[in-house]
Design a protein around this nucleic acid. Structure first.
Length: 468
RNA sequence: GGCGACGUCGCCAAGUGGCAAGGCAGGGGUCUGCAAAACCCCCAUCGCCGGUUCGAAUCCGGCCGUCGCCUCCA
């Protein structure tokens, strides 16, 4: 099986090969930390977590870098607004985001660099670009990238340079030579964070940080560069321009972009104000629910996010969990056992075929549901433990690739367990005495309290209802 | 206006040339004291119009609709 990856640069699915055999260098654009992260950020993080987990499943060693933009206009603006130090704000939200990613079961990136800690590399890169005449310094100490010096400019977003340049007069206040030029370094303004540089005090422009961090932590050329598709232009276009003009080599082999999460038909974004924060979501739902929502759709397409979708996610999670329920019979040989083993094989093949096709998680999920059915059928047929556990272990190994934990929700502490058990003991007596009305009342009342009771030939079982 | 993407069952959503995956919901069964869960069965010709082809949801053209980018954005 060969992995194929859709490359934004070529608009085609391409066979996946790496610069270094067996190793993947992956850079994913992280957030600007000036406010609460929302589920749109989570979607992007999870998409690339799927990518990473599957690459590791395939045996690659992945070096994964995800940045925090902690020096930025918006952070400074926010700081001024609430009277707090910009660095404090950035530090706080970065910490929060890391914590949220952990709760979402996103694998920790190999490196989590921040702009404020990458200044020397940024300065070196800007200096190199100035030296090679790809950049120029203005009277006030800003440094701009001269877009015209890059013949390939526009190749990622398929824009012609003229479109970005013609017809727009250079704003008088700005000192850049042409409209398409963009800032590599901004001269310091009073009260703003700044660092020393050959061009005077200042701070990095928006795009240079990613080029510098990628260069510093992954080298001149990387395998995968990822981010939301709203970053294609200008951010990634400018990154390519800077890096390639600086190194003289092609930058990333594969550019991967996830689609936007849509809330009420619009992109969820801070500026539109239509957002659900990660904390809000996780307060009401299991992280697996969100992962299932993301996995249920092709990552490049826009993803609808609404109450129905969330409910679907809850139900899908509940269904996946049924496969982990224990076996009830002793059968270890025979057709039912063989059928189970066969389905396990088929599911693995189907799962990998789907993931190999540009990380088709929705297809992979379908393979998983087929396996769930096979496991449940085997349980009903009385298949017991050595083979049954093997099938469940196999199921687990695939679930892991999607980062699903499938933990059964626990009651607040384990404190209610003895009381529920007691009620069920009493209820068993009632059932023996055919006191159906009372027995049913107990079951109904428990359900109202979030405890689901199910009667089986082996006795009654109980579990907590899913969160929310 | 320019660039790009998308439009598949009530909802979510795979499939990119050969008789339309999967989940949820819905209908009918098995099991059960009942219920739930599980299991079995049923449930779409793919926005519209043309074209290419033996054959198209899948390729081409037009139209309609939705979304993203072009300013900060995962």
């Amino acid at each position: 099986m060969a992995l194929a990856v859709y490359n934004t640069l070529t608009h085609e699915k391409e066979p996946f090969t790496t610069i270094e055999p067996g190793k993947v260098r992956m850079y994913v654009c992280g957030p600007t930390v000036y406010d609460e992260a929302h589920v749109g950020h989570a979607m992007s993080a999870i998409v690339f977590d799927f990518v990473r987990r599957y690459l590791e499943y395939k045996g690659y060693q992945v070096r994964h870098v995800m940045n925090f933009t902690d020096v930025d206009d918006k952070i400074i603006a926010r700081a001024a607004q609430i009277g707090e130090d910009p660095a404090e704000i950035a530090h706080r939200y970065a910490g929060q985001y890391k914590d949220q990613l952990a709760r979402l079961n996103v694998l920790q990136p190999t490196v989590f660099p921040r702009v404020s800690q990458t200044i020397p590399e940024i300065v070196r890169m800007v200096a190199g670009l100035v030296e090679s005449d790809h950049a120029y310094i203005t009277a006030s100490g800003d440094v701009y990238f001269r877009v015209r010096t890059d013949p390939d400019y526009g190749k990622l977003s398929r824009r012609k340079l003229e479109e970005a340049v013609t017809g727009t007069r250079v704003a008088s206040r700005e000192e850049k030579l042409e409209e398409g030029d963009f800032a590599l370094w901004k001269a310091a303004k009073p009260g703003e964070p700044s660092w020393d540089s050959p061009w005077g005090n200042g701070r990095p422009g928006w795009h240079i940080e990613c080029s510098a961090m990628s260069w510093h932590y992954l080298g001149e050329q990387i395998d995968i560069h990822g981010g939301g598709n709203d970053l294609v232009f200008p951010h990634h276009e400018n990154e390519i321009a800077q890096t390639e003009c600086f190194t003289g080599k092609p930058f990333a082999r594969y550019w991967m972009h996830n689609g936007m999460l849509q809330l009420k038909g619009e992109k969820m974004s801070k500026s539109l104000g239509n957002l659900v924060t990660i904390d809000e979501f996780l307060a009401a739902h299991d992280a697996d629910v969100f992962r299932l929502i993301v996995a249920g759709s092709q990552y490049r397409k826009p993803l609808a996010f609404n109450e129905d979708v969330v409910v679907n996610g809850e139900r899908a999670l509940e269904r996946l969990r049924t496969a982990l329920r224990p076996p009830t019979g002793p059968v270890t040989t025979g057709p039912a056992v063989e059928a189970l083993a066969e389905q396990v094989r088929q599911s693995h093949v189907a799962f990998e075929a789907a993931m190999d096709d540009d990380f088709n998680t929705a297809g992979a999920l379908a393979a998983l549901f087929d396996l769930v059915r096979a496991i449940n059928t085997a349980r009903d047929a009385g298949v017991g433990d050595p083979p049954f556990a093997a099938a469940q272990a196999s199921f687990r190994s695939l679930i892991d690739v999607l980062g699903l934990r499938l933990v059964v929700p626990q009651a607040a502490g384990q404190s209610i367990a003895p009381f529920v058990e007691l009620l069920l003991t009493v209820r068993l007596e009632l059932r023996k005495a055919k006191q159906w009305a009372l027995a049913d009342k107990i079951r109904d009342e428990l359900k109202a309290l979030g405890v689901i009771v199910e009667d089986t030939p082996q006795g009654s079982s109980w579990r907590m209802a899913g969160l929310s």
